[in-house]
Structures are given as structure tokens and as C-alpha cells.
Write a protein that binds this DNA or RNA. Structure first.
Lengths: 236, 236
DNA sequence: ACCTGAACACCGTTCAAGT
DNA sequence: ACCTGAACACCGTTCAAGT
């Protein structure tokens, strides 16, 4: 309304890559990955979409910048622990961060190039294996088996598959009927340990499954490492 | 051009859900997931985009139908084998199918609901564990650790991260320089077993890494199963 | 140097209208 | 019953023009 420049309006602070990234992250945290478009991010900042191109090459660059910012939230590696607890700590610290940004895993999987923050994090994980007496070859395999687990997440298939309430008899019956052609899944679903978890729905404890899998893999790797050094002892 | 209906033109066959799905799959096989839009699928069929809505509820439904069709390509389960080779066979058969449709994993991960073909496949895998003497609880955990591996794929982080040619000295030097701040990754990359694989690039054998991880997990699960029954023997 | 209006080439989807 | 034209509300991105 005022023809004079208003020096004390809220939207005073100038744009910057940092501000663009943070606005986009905020949007994604609230509304998921679909909530982020150049136009909406611009709007969030009180600016036209085209202005963003002064601080970000394009949408891909924006997305990459967003995940970089997330990865940099992971606390730095503190050495001195044995390899297994170090690795567990690393994965769980990363997991903690990704939990605050549920859109991030999906976006990471669409990145094609490694970025410095990603490389830095990976380097710390690789270092733990090497320090722990793993051969280069086994370390390499280890990174592959861990996959995204090294970053503290696993992409669940059919995350929200069914949110049935185990106290709702009607819903239980409906589920039983739906699963009738799949007797093995049905058996598994019905016998779920009601103290700790269930097969389907929000009662299935993601954290528990994560560490179960992580520990299974770490134990397996440890066994391979020991067998490897045994072999070397025998041969050398 | 002709005002008379031309009964012998190529595009004679009427639309059907099946035809729409197959056209979309063909497009995706060639150009990836971005190549599929309602308009392009329509064009592929010599039809306007809006016509598709007579056979498909919307784009989500189209995508779901596409992955269902893929999953149905997986050969049926043949019983009679021991659990471990049965499971390995299942995963590798599925993997074979998904390799012909590289877009499918990414699309599967965006599905929210289980579909009958998915449930049927999963049921066969769950059945293998149960048949193999795993408790329901351990079977449940097993399905979680396996994750997408049960379907024969793992979403690689940064798939096309770097296609360096190990015979190109210039490229090697550039890579070394780029990885200089990440000594552990560099060490791993340089020491890669040149006979079978490398850390980065197309030389890294996906199949080999897949079965390495699969076997590691299956061995770990077997150990847990045996420990579980031991405990039961001791307690009972 | 940074922001914008107008424009372009795309999307998914709806609906009334055609055959 | 099935297909379509026109339209709507969105996209990412460019570029010349404004300050």
C-alpha cells in the first residue's frame, strides 16, 4: 500500500541459499516431499518463485542442498569406542536426525551424485570398519549390505499398509477376511507379540526392527572378519 | 482424412486396462519413471490422455497396476526345497524380473497399500520361513531385515555415483584428488579387487553384492533360529 | 546485484459434449 | 459405453525488464 519503502517489515532479511534451504526443509517437514515446489518455497519466503534461481541452480540443486543440510546435522564421530558400538552409535545418531525429516530418505534415493557432507559421513563409517580390523574388501561388502542402514534408515515397503486397531473386533475380522487367501501372512499377523509389536500398523516398532536388523548384520560381519583373519593366520 | 470409419487401421484394437498398463510399462522400461505421464501413455496408444480414465482411476492407480503386473511376472513358488535355497531362489527369481523393469523399485516404494499380487508373493516368502522351522516372531523380524531384498532388490544409494575408467590415468588422478579429504573411502576405492569389482562405477557387481548381503542375512537368521530352538529345548 | 512479469512447455484431472 | 475438447489449477524454467 505504502509507496515509500518500508524498512521495518517482517520480510526484511534478504534471501540467501541458507534461507531458501531452511524454508524448503520446513515445508517438507510439515507436508512431505510433495509440499515442496519452487512456487511454494518462494511463497514461504514472501518472494516470487523465480527469485530462488538466484540462490539455487534449479529444483534438483535445491533438493540436494536440503539433504546436505540434514546430513550435516548428524553429530560428529567420536573415536575411541570399539567398532561395533561405534557403528551402532553412528547409525542411531543418523537415524535420530532422519526421524525429524521423514521426507529425506526418499529424496536421498533420488540423488545421483555424492556430495561432500555425504562423503564425510560415509568416510567416518568406512573408517570404523578399517579401524576394527576389517579388510578393505570386507569393508566394501559391509558398506553394501548396510546400505541405507548406515545412514540410520531403511525404506519400509508399504509403510502405512494398515492401521488396524487390535481392540476393534470388527476391524480384526475384516483383516482376517482380507488375509484369508494368504494363510502365512495371516498366521504371522495373528501371532504377533502384543507386548512389543505387531505385524501391521503403527504398533510395529520401527526402532526395534531397525536395531534387530543392524545387530544381525554387524554380528554376521564380525564373524566374517574373524574367519578372514583365521584364514590369514593359517595361510601366513 | 477419410470421413468413413477405417476398419483396417493399426490402432483398431480398443483400449483396455491391460493395454494401458502394458503401454505404460513399455514407456517406463525405455525412459524410466519420468517418461510416464498420462498424456504420453495416451499418445503411445494413439488416444487422448483423458481416455485413460475410463480404464484407470488416476495416475496412482496406473502405477499400482504397473507394479502388480510386474510382480505377477515372478515365477510361482515351487515347494520341496530346504528353506535357505528356496528363499534364495525366490529372491533371485524376483530380482530377475525387476532387472527388466528398473523403474519398478522406486515406484513400489511409493505405494502405500498392499495389493493381492504383492500379498501373494510375500505370503510365499513368509511360508518358507514358517516351513523352515522359524517361530512366528522370528519370521516377522526376518521379513523386516530382508525388506526389499525379499523382492530381489535393494535401493542403492547414489547408483551412478561415478563411472570412472580405471584405465584412464587422468580420471584416476582426478578421483584421487576429489577423495583426498576422505582417506578411508579413498583407501577402499583404491584397494578394490580389480578381478571382480570396484567400489565405484559400473564395475561394481550388483549381483555379487546382492547375494553377499542375502547370504549374510540368511546365515544370521539361521543362527537365531537354532539358538531359539535350543532355548526352547532347555526350557521345555 | 537481486527481484519480477510474462511467457513457455509441460503436468493431472474434470466435465459437458460428442459418437 | 467409450472417447474427446476445452478448461482449470498446478508444475519448472527462461529471459528481458525493472529497481
Amino acid at each position: 500500500m505504502a509507496t515509500q519503502p518500508d524498512t521495518r517489515t517482517e520480510a526484511r532479511t534478504p534471501l540467501s541459499r541458507e534461507r531458501v534451504l531452511q524454508a524448503a526443509i520446513g515445508l517438507a517437514d510439515e507436508g512431505g516431499v510433495d509440499a515442496i515446489s519452487m512456487r511454494k518455497v518462494g511463497q514461504e519466503l514472501g518472494v516470487e518463485a523465480m527469485s530462488l534461481y538466484n540462490h539455487v541452480a534449479n529444483k534438483e540443486d535445491l533438493l540436494t542442498g536440503m539433504v546436505d543440510a540434514i546430513v550435516e546435522e548428524i553429530p560428529p564421530f567420536t573415536p575411541g569406542l570399539d567398532w561395533k558400538t561405534a557403528l551402532r552409535g553412528r547409525a542411531l545418531a543418523a537415524r535420530d536426525v532422519f526421524k525429524r525429516h521423514e521426507w529425506a530418505p526418499r529424496v536421498i534415493e533420488t540423488r545421483t551424485d555424492m556430495t561432500p557432507p555425504m562423503l564425510a559421513y560415509m568416510d567416518s563409517v568406512v573408517g570404523i570398519f578399517i579401524q576394527g580390523g576389517f579388510s578393505m574388501d570386507l569393508t566394501h561388502h559391509a558398506m553394501h549390505v548396510l546400505g541405507s542402514r548406515a545412514f540410520g534408515f531403511t525404506q519400509e515397503l508399504f509403510k502405512e499398509t494398515d492401521e488396524f486397531d487390535e481392540n476393534d473386533e470388527m476391524a480384526m475380522l475384516l483383516m482376517q477376511q482380507m488375509l484369508e487367501p494368504y494363510p502365512n501372512i495371516l498366521a504371522m499377523a495373528m501371532s504377533a507379540d502384543h507386548e512389543h509389536e505387531r505385524m501391521l500398523g503403527p504398533g510395529c516398532d520401527d526402532d526395534l526392527e531397525f536395531v534387530f536388523g543392524l545387530d544381525l548384520i554387524l554380528d554376521g560381519l564380525e564373524r566374517l572378519r574373524d574367519r578372514e583373519t583365521e584364514g590369514a593366520d593359517a595361510a601366513g
